[in-house]
Nucleic acid binder design. Structure first.
Lengths: 220, 220, 220, 220
DNA sequence: TATGAATGAGGCTTCATTCAT
DNA sequence: AATGAATGAAGCCTCATTCAT
């Protein structure tokens, strides 16, 4: 009986594992489709085909197409958060630039993906079917902002950064990263640079120093 | 006969004028719809309604829906170019920051519109129906970049700006502006700042000084 | 100019006429489908096919499938109301049974249809897409009930009918008619009678006298 | 060996008992779902959930969803038949109204259920998967009709009832009961009466006397 | 010339049923 | 024997585009 129990438990576990694996597979394949074909061309049917499963199966794992997209969004934001944690730890260990570097690295190391995620967010932002997930995304961002805010505040007090509301610095970073990604993949700029890495390095350099005190002259 | 001729010419001219006026009206109303309802909600029918004409008439002026959107895109880019011309003139007259300021002002003075245009570009980027217009857009950008490149080159030579390929500076500006707009309208950041204008001023300030020599430390 | 105007007015009128004609055609064909194949087999595609038009065209006339069904419902109830008006007129002219006869005649003269309408009502009763039409249906019924109520009240006062709330008599009629229709088309009773007309005549006879004073003995 | 045999027989019996118990549980829970949520909202998955078993298990007991519904139908008709048996017995014992009363009581004592059953019948009437069960239902009704027919014939001969084919009286009863149930639950009549019980009592009273001789005047 | 009715491909989603474990 | 993940046919609806008037 004991062994039977444990074997049946094993079986259930194995099933759960497989189920989750398939869920991940759907996510992965969906992402693959999205990156390849662009957001508008990807249908639930296409995702199912790519994953080698039936359309109906997709709906065993996700309540709607938007939910798949939301999941990609959250996974991505999570990965950024983890990277930021490391950056913050390094910053607290005395390397003040580490945080910003970590941030830019997170977002620019795979700019195709970052850009896709930007587009996904626009697309599902107002879909009531994923209101909850969107709220979660926003909560994650808020948490990140707050943790960064503390550090930024210290840098302001130490006279390193401009005295503006602390999250301005974060938002400016976010903006620059966001735009950097757009530049990389905007087809109109494709012929403007031969070395994407080099450009991103330049922009990251800007990100690391921007907002430093004494560097701003008045805008109109 | 002469007067008849001239009157018939007048008639034709008047018709042309009316035709073009209507075309502009369609563009304007389409833009109005897009800004009001968001890119996904706007149908050709809605545009025609808003313009007070029939759907069929829209297709007398534009070959496809994408063409309307492309037209908005081009109009916008054109307006930026005009502004840049003034900025460049001022820069040549001895005000080196004027160009960057002009650029940021063009893009951030109406961020809702800038953001919409970003989205439009994503949407129609690969649509073969407007391949030509997209090419034109890219050509405009290239022209702008080149003209800026000349000035930037001078600033580099005068030791004001970092010695990187000249268009890097432009692309960084583009990126920061692009991202600034995203920050403004990302709902997840809505509660992070109370005064959009203030934030944009801060970011514009960054834009004006970024890339200045002596401000960059190496990114990884 | 005058004749041009009138001819263009004519054209518009003709178009409207055609449009309404097609709308009616859709209703008619939908009804035909429903009667032939049963409510569950009828899809929007089937209706469109039957009417010889595209699926999309159906949606130019009706906002949803339910709206088609609701329209059939309302048309039918309207026809009953018109018949009732005549019956009430006759009743006021001194033929007290005329009203009930008119009612039964309305409902039993085409029992297939009546039964279908019953089913339709069940089906769309709670569909929010036709909440308005359902409300209208109920309003029509309420109006009918009230007008009948006045007459029934008189008959009660004259001692012809049982002294119960007046609309009880109407509701009992409605119930008997409703059930009579079910009997006619319930396949389980198909072999119980050879002459449907004869049975309905018998039941109508019951309807005309039921509720008359002195005929009721207590139910448990 | 003997005792082993008997114990294995016991086991088999126990299993059968459990199997049948579960089957009944499925029926009960299905009915519960149907009454709660309405016929359109109930899926096989919902029934299985409610019964606390897997979907697959449901299909060990029933070949199709329709079969479950058919079973509910037959159970209900059976219960009516049992009640009728008692009513007939009472009628034979000298209480001629007992039969009709029994019938109405069977159908109107739980009108929600009766209405549901009506709807089920409509729904599965033509489903080939349950053709057999539908035939059985019809056979049961025919049997009931015939047994009643004998009594009605006697009442006709004694001059109590109108001289029409005997089952007309039964069918009229069926119709009135059927319609009474519809009245109760038609939302359009919801505001026409405050006391459902009172209305049903009135209608039952009609049912008991209808068809009695001397009460009919000719319908058209 | 302007119109808008007609079109139908194509998207999303549901759910009865099957079948490998 | 029981399970529930997988299936895919089928339904409803949208909307860019066409074309007869």
């Amino acid at each position: 009986m004991g062994s039977m129990n444990s074997s049946s438990t094993d079986k259930i576990r194995e099933k759960k594992r497989q189920f989750l694996a398939r869920e991940q597979r759907i996510i992965d394949k969906a992402l693959q489709c999205l990156l390849r074909a662009g957001i508008d061309q990807v249908t639930v049917a296409a995702i199912a085909d790519e994953a080698g499963i039936g359309k109906g199966t997709v709906y065993k794992h996700f309540q709607s197409k938007s939910e798949i997209l939301a999941r990609i969004l959250l996974d991505y934001e999570n990965r950024i958060r983890v990277n930021m944690d490391q950056g913050i730890a390094a910053a607290e260990a005395g390397n003040p630039g580490a945080m910003v570097k970590a941030y830019f690295h997170s977002r620019l190391s795979n700019p195709e993906l970052d850009r896709l995620v930007q587009q996904l967010e626009e697309r599902i932002q107002d879909d009531p079917l994923v209101a909850e997930q969107i709220a979660e995304l926003h909560a994650m961002r808020r948490a990140t902002t707050e943790r960064i805010g503390v550090m930024v505040q210290q840098l302001i007090e130490r006279g390193v950064l401009e005295e503006v509301p602390p999250h301005y610095h974060y938002l400016a970073c976010w903006a620059l990263a966001q735009g950097a990604v757009d530049v990389c993949f905007n087809k109109g700029f494709a012929d403007q640079f031969s070395d994407k890495e080099d450009l991103l390095r330049f922009i990251t350099g800007i990100g690391v120093t921007m907002g430093n005190k004494g560097q701003l002259r008045g805008a109109d």
